[in-house]
Design a binder for these strands. Structure first.
Lengths: 366, 366
DNA sequence: TTGTATGCGTTATCAC
DNA sequence: GTGATAACGCATACAA
């Protein structure tokens, strides 16, 4: 007999080449159970709802699978299902920074929880890394496309690339308000309402002159707070001129005990500091009041539009609001999941919880 | 013309059914570049060593891929028995726990850094998830096989599943000593040497009677410390009987100021506490000494086999050692990368750095 | 109720 | 140099 070269199976690769012992596949289970591979798939995936498969066959298959120690190959499952159940998480800085100060950790708590609840696993892409997705220029950002969709953290994500992905229909969600990019989905905290509420609280205590201490940053998170602050003033019928906002690139230097006394002499009774990565605004006000020998809330009221930095966590709890970081992370994942599923996204704003705290009270009698 | 039903392609599923814009595949890149899909694969995988492909074609393919934002499908890559540059990180509990106390964070810092440096992206698999894959029994652990290999954190990873993966030749590394599983690769801190060194330090200061305070846990990390402690005693020629180790399920309750005074009356001059998730041993000794009005290191010397819990981070720096968590994470990734590359793993033990601290001194004169 | 036939996106081999 | 083509393991529409 002559060999038939055409019948010789051509294999893409030798199994032995991988060095990996091959596990039992559905085909083997099928053989052992005396059924077809398709039947095995049906039984195992439990998709045959309407008694499509006889109980006896089902049992045989199940037994065979168990006896062989069958476990499905996730790669094959995902390939066949055209979904890899992976959500990307991209952060420009390391996802796990050494410096925990400005970490995304609290968001990730919510992200992980929600993703897990929805059956997604997370792929971490780090922008600053030398290898991985962030390595070779902004273009390597394309690597996130290996996931079903991607969550972006931090405000430094290149707009051009983001726009491109959105245009391509790749599901993208930005954590943090970002409206300048048409069509970009995002979730963010409602700083405006929350800041406004803090002012209302102060006004209801009797404060008439309130000053916002903020850093010199045009991030949405900052401008939102200022907007809410001013809106709060207006709603309370208070003056909101340029004097109401003190903007400094270095509050630690500019907000001195002297400056504080001057404000007070001018009739200011309450100060509101914004929260930033550095926490400098709050730290500065805090320190200046202490140095000036002013007690709080006796001599003056202080409020913080956010949470205090770790080093001041031990001090009296500041009046203000808590950014619901867990919930924000979860909301972002929910939105991303919606996009991946082809649904339209819903409400992007998450409310902040007002925190009464212990640093505000009625203004002192004069 | 008559339709030819036999020619109608039968598809396993409708692409449109997913509602998702599908990511570009090699086929589309090929079309755009005017070449075959196979050529695209060759060019992209850079496997065409011997100038098998013209520079011009190669450029066309590369451009096409870039312009389409092509990125390989990890599932398909793995199915075809190659690597997908993904390393799994599996933690039985949430990777980002709400309770930061016993968090893997410090390890992940090293893991992320090392993975990035080696060009790997990280996939986070969460075991504790309520929904998702983690819910469906230990079997769901198999989804990590989507990655090239996987790192396991925490001691609660099901042995049977781990063993299975190892047997299948799937690259697995366990973070933390785990020798009961034959063939399981792991990396861990050298608690034995480090603990021994702490004892040597105490002995060199003149202490003759030293007691180890430990919790009632049989984790390797605990037994290692005890072993090192006892070895240290022996090396210093000190008594190491059963009295040398105080084991309690609740040190906070059992290590009272009275108990402490009794020990001291018996001639004990130094106490060594183990570090655990809870930090209870150290906290108990610390509190008991304070309550008893004993100063440290004046009246007694204290040492901690690890780092203090966050709530005691502000106190005097304890003599002891630091677990090199970053380095451990990095070492784990290195080992995993070796396994993935088919090499054999190297040294699993990472040395801990001795920390002089300020809680030990010469024993008081009697 | 079960089996047959495809296709998912890649890699790898072999003719042309 | 390049283009068919065969797997990889699984899921699913459709025929039997």
């Amino acid at each position: 007999m002559v060999e038939q070269p055409s019948k010789r199976p051509r294999r893409g690769r030798t199994p032995a080449a991988t060095g990996r012992t091959s596990r039992p596949r559905q085909a083997e289970v099928a053989r052992l159970a005396g059924v077809s591979q398709a039947t095995v798939s049906l039984v195992l995936s439990d998709k045959a709802q309407g008694s499509a498969i006889s109980d006896e066959t089902r049992q045989r298959v199940l037994d065979a699978a168990r006896s062989l120690g069958y476990v499905p190959d996730p790669a094959a499952q995902r390939l066949a299902a055209v979904r890899n159940n992976l959500l990307g998480v991209y952060s420009f800085t390391a996802t796990f920074p050494t410096d925990v100060e400005h970490s995304y950790y609290p968001f990730l708590v919510g992200v992980e929880r929600e993703a897990a609840a929805r059956g997604y696993d997370l792929v971490l892409f780090t922008g600053s890394s030398s290898g991985g997705a962030g390595a070779a220029g902004p273009e390597a950002l394309n690597r996130v496309r290996l996931a079903d969709g991607c969550l972006f953290l931090g405000r430094h994500v290149p707009s051009a690339e983001l726009k491109r992905m959105v245009a391509d229909g790749f599901p993208v969600v930005h954590l943090g308000r970002r409206e300048e990019l048409e069509g970009l989905s995002w979730v963010g905290a409602d700083y405006v309402s929350a800041s406004s509420e803090v002012v209302r609280h102060l006004a209801s205590l009797g404060h008439r002159r309130i000053v916002l201490i903020r850093e010199d940053d045009d991030a949405p998170a900052s401008t939102d707070r200022q907007q809410g602050f001013l809106a709060g003033l207006e709603a309370a019928g208070l003056a909101g001129g340029p004097d109401a906002v003190f903007r400094s690139a270095d509050p630690g230097r500019d907000v001195t005990p002297d400056r504080l006394r001057r404000w007070i002499a001018e009739g200011v009774t309450a100060f509101v500091a914004e929260e930033t990565d550095t926490g400098n605004a709050w730290r500065a006000v805090h320190a200046a009041a202490a140095e000036a020998g002013l007690t709080c809330p006796g001599d003056l009221s202080l409020a913080l539009l956010g949470s205090p930095p770790p080093d001041l966590a031990g001090a009296a709890e500041p009046t203000g609001f808590d950014v619901p970081r867990h919930q924000l992370g979860a909301a972002a994942v929910r939105m991303l999941a919606s996009l991946v599923a082809g649904e339209t996204a819903d409400e992007p704003l998450v409310a902040c919880a007002f925190r009464p705290g212990a640093t505000t009270g009625s203004p002192p009698e004069r």
